[in-house]
Nucleic acid binder design. Structure first.
Length: 421
RNA sequence: CGGGCUGUGGCGCAGAUGGUAGCGCGCUUCGUUCGGGACGAAGAGGCCGUGGGUUCAAAUCCCGCCAGCCCGACCA
């Protein structure tokens, strides 16, 4: 992608009323654009990040046997009445359609997935099974806040598992719990598995909490064994001895990027979803649900991975692996050499399958290009200039590092391929 | 939903005591520049969030509404 083709550009001025780091940097860098409180457009660069996050989540969910589906976001009233949640979910966006039929925009999908799976699963032999989707969720939050961290429309992965017994649910729950840690690690996030309220369904649930000052949640974490608990249900306080080991409990703010629940038989019961067992009788169906906020993840990554100049994307989710910066010159011959060399580099890398953003703008100062590269945060910056070409080289600088080095023109493509892999 | 702050070109802001809108950035054109947000010159761009009121006259004063942000409450 050539920078000159991007219609969504960076802004020299940070937005005034975006207080949170993720909102400020993502808006300033042209990754997202705000339509209303808690409602954002994902611009070309931002969408690339979101799509990479989704791709990782898909891989991870497929690894635990999740089968991807896509359910409607527009949901009729009836199933909500079945579960008696039409009036009890206060963030439900309700609307009236043709013929005065009532609908809600899905804030979660138990009401859709349960009858869906019920339509196909009749026997214990069909269990366990697990379905997930990545979709925009709608929640009429009283107060949207903190950029991508708490929106009214936001992208979420929600998976639902179905089991013939509580024991089977528990086994699967633990499998997913472990996979979640792996998933977050792949995005450079250290998400702490935290005990949290189980709501009406079970004794407790688990949240995956990323420590950041902008988090909405307050959690207590052991500095040794990393056992953690949300303040909602905490029986410990800052400075206590960990109940699991002899470590110390630390109070910290964190943002919840994932949440896993054992739903027990609550929803299956509501819909009369049972399966035929070996002995011909009907058995209850146990469910688990497993959520991850896709857009919130993106915001969280920015919160934990940035410096005063801008974002530092982990390689796994960066919109582009490489940001090529070509620096012009007053000397026409030099300028053309640089331009040609940058074109060659761009073409070679692109052909090698490396994702490259090339700041090909002419007449833009080096300083401005560097500032933009820092703001946009691609993992690797390659500078093509008179200076570097004088040594038949390209300047190599990683965003997360302060040092730069020269790599020869002959080596550069293979070096980058290795880096980007 | 309670409380607070703020709405003035695309972005960031200034516009005491009311008199018909200005700066920086950005944008356009020309020229000079070219390794950390360059310089000069000439331009374009605004019913001052919105509705009402007060007044000869409202960005400015008063009331309502809307929107955004922040704190709190809430968060299956």
């Amino acid at each position: 992608m050539k920078y000159s083709h991007l219609f969504a550009k960076t802004n020299k001025m940070a937005p005034a009323d975006a207080d949170s780091t993720n909102a400020r940097l993502l808006i300033q860098g042209g990754f997202v654009n705000q339509l209303a409180a808690g409602i954002y457009t994902f611009l070309p660069l931002g969408l690339r990040v979101l799509n990479k996050i989704k791709a990782i989540v898909r891989e991870e969910m497929n690894m635990v046997g999740g089968q991807e589906v896509l359910m409607p976001a527009l949901i009729p009233k009836a199933p909500w009445e079945t579960t008696k949640r039409w009036d009890s979910i206060d963030v439900l966006y309700k609307l009236t359609g043709a013929g005065d039929k009532e609908f809600a925009l899905g804030p979660t999908h138990e009401e859709v997935v349960t009858p869906l799976v019920q339509a196909f699963v009749k026997s214990y032999k069909d269990l366990p099974c697990s379905a997930y989707q990545i979709q925009d969720k709608f929640r009429n939050e009283a107060r949207a806040k903190s950029g991508l961290l708490r929106g009214r429309e936001f992208s979420m992965k929600d998976m639902y598992s179905f089991h013939r017994s509580e024991a089977d649910l528990e086994t699967y729950y633990d499998t997913v719990a472990e996979q979640y840690t792996h998933l977050f690690n792949r995005m450079g996030l250290d998400a702490i598995k935290t005990e949290a309220s189980g709501g009406v369904f079970s004794k407790y649930s688990h949240e995956y909490q990323v420590v950041t000052p902008y988090g909405e949640d307050l959690i207590y974490v052991c500095d040794k064994c990393r056992w953690a608990v949300n303040r909602e249900i905490a029986e410990v306080k800052n400075g206590d001895i960990c109940p699991k080991c002899d470590g110390k409990i630390i109070e910290t703010k964190a943002i919840e990027v994932g949440n896993i629940f054992k739903l027990s038989t609550r929803f299956a019961d509501d819909f009369g979803f049972t399966v035929t067992l070996e002995d011909g009788t009907q058995g209850k169906v146990w469910m688990g649900c497993y959520g991850i906020g896709m857009s919130r993840l993106m915001g969280s990554i920015v919160e934990v991975s940035h410096d005063e100049r801008g974002i530092i994307w982990p390689k796994s989710v960066a919109p582009f692996a490489v940001h090529v910066v070509s620096i012009g010159s007053k000397d026409v011959a030099v300028h053309e050499r640089v331009q040609q060399s940058a074109t060659d580099l761009y073409d070679q890398l692109t052909r090698a399958g490396v994702e490259v953003l090339w700041d090909d703008r002419v007449g833009v100062s080096a300083g401005e290009k560097f500032a933009d590269a820092d703001l946009l945060g691609m993992p690797l910056r390659l500078v093509v200039s008179e200076k570097s070409l004088a040594q038949s080289s390209i300047e190599w600088k990683e965003r997360a590092s302060t040092e730069s080095k020269l790599v020869t023109l002959t080596d550069i493509v293979s070096y980058v391929e290795t880096f980007a892999r």
